[in-house]
Amino acid sequence: MQNVRITTLEFVITVIFVHFPVIASAQADFEGIWNPQHPPRMGQPPPDEVRLTPAGQAEYDNHSADTDRTLRCLMPGIPLGLVDPYPLEIVQQDHQVLFLYEHFHQVRRIFTDGRKAPDHWLPSLIGYSTGHWDGDTLVVRTTHMSPDNNMWTAGFPFSGDENTYVIERYTRDGDMLTFRGEVHDPTYYEEPYVVNGRWSFAPEGEIWEYECIPEFGGIL
């Protein structure tokens, strides 16, 4: 029988991976409840800096208050819900990171096990998200988003066609979680639509129910 010599370092690494798989695979701890601390304009770019294509401009010119789906009690999804004004709970598992939003009880599954969207995956409001760690930054790519959505409630449209995708980067600095989102929609935008958001860690935070009544969403 061969004598197996295990160095001290190999032993320590083995213990870590066996007993603390989450720590071993995740590069940062995002778990917990986070309260919105977003920049002005809800992290949206200044409207006069948004460069629309002719098709995008035509959509923008035709927007009305009715295009805000959240006023009709329909969940914002992605990209509309990228910067959200309600608390968020993050749960990290071996194969995915869960974003549990108070707003409309939205659930985002960000698969971190290397999988790709199945061929049969249909477009949806929440899309299909995969993620990986770049150092201590979680990088999320979302595709398969529904065209029945907007970029932002100020009337900026979203095509949701097969060329659209979103890249988000989340980084924790102490009790602040910052993120930058780039929405790639070349049909409507000359360049990526960039949003920025911030969340503050809330150990005593609470996720409440968000019941919604459409009759109270409209403008009288």
Partner: peptide, 17 residues
């Protein structure tokens, strides 16, 4: 106390309406 100083944000772009 949990929300003192929390900037008040809204999902809707109020200026639209």
């Amino acid at each position: 106390a949990f929300f003192v100083g929390v900037p008040v944000t809204a999902h809707h772009s109020g200026s639209t309406y």
